[in-house]
């Protein structure tokens, strides 16, 4: 098991921030807030430690800076909903680059995960699964190919389904 990167407080901040970043008029993704917490934690785990620390520091700054830049003067997690959206808009144009950059990065990650959900991709008329499956079959039929790489050593702990899960 890998260690969790986000604390409970950070998870809750992320869950509170997410509805203001994803489009309210867009397709609804069931349990997206829970999914985003899990996905972002996994993503942060992969980042270089310096970048990961900066991200977590930025998260604290974003929450705390609401005391100075939001109305009413409270931490982000305690702001009423309309004030949260105003605060996010203001921070996205802020002169204070660390918070602005953090918000841009965090926003980007949330949207990356949102627009990668099948429901959302379908709404964009993007259906790569069917498309890719057709193409894989077409090539297999054309060439009757199988891929073999021979012997590759990997650690015993890697679950086999993580290695051999056929997508198409």
């Amino acid at each position: 098991m890998r260690r969790k990167i986000l604390s409970t407080r950070q998870e809750s901040l992320l869950a509170e921030l997410t509805p203001h970043i994803i489009p309210a008029d867009g397709p609804v993704v069931p349990h997206f807030q829970a999914k985003i917490v899990q996905r972002l934690d996994r993503f942060l785990f992969e980042l270089p430690s310096l970048l990961r620390s900066l991200f977590l520091w930025g998260m604290r700054m974003f929450d705390f800076a609401a005391i100075f830049f939001a109305t009413p003067r409270r931490r982000f997690r305690r702001l009423p909903h309309p004030s949260r959206f105003d605060y996010i808009s203001r921070m996205s144009r802020s002169w204070f680059r660390p918070v602005r950059d953090w918000l841009f990065g965090c926003r980007g990650l949330i949207l990356l995960f949102y627009y990668s959900q099948p429901e959302v991709m379908a709404a964009l008329q993007f259906d790569p699964e069917v498309w890719a499956r057709e193409k894989v079959q077409a090539r297999r039929q054309a060439l009757n190919l199988t891929e073999t790489i021979g012997e590759v050593k990997i650690p015993a702990e890697i679950p086999q389904d993580d290695q051999d899960d056929s997508e198409y």
């Binding site: 203001h20 489009p23 996205s92 949207l111 627009y115 964009l124 008329q125």
Partner: peptide, 25 residues
């Protein structure tokens, strides 16, 4: 770029993001 990666690189969020991404195709 797949839609997720494209949305990540654009400076929009909320409904502004979706209004734009609706034109993905």
């Amino acid at each position: 770029l797949p839609p997720g990666i494209l949305a990540l690189s654009l400076p929009y969020f909320g409904n502004d993001s979706f209004k734009l991404m609706e034109h993905y195709h």
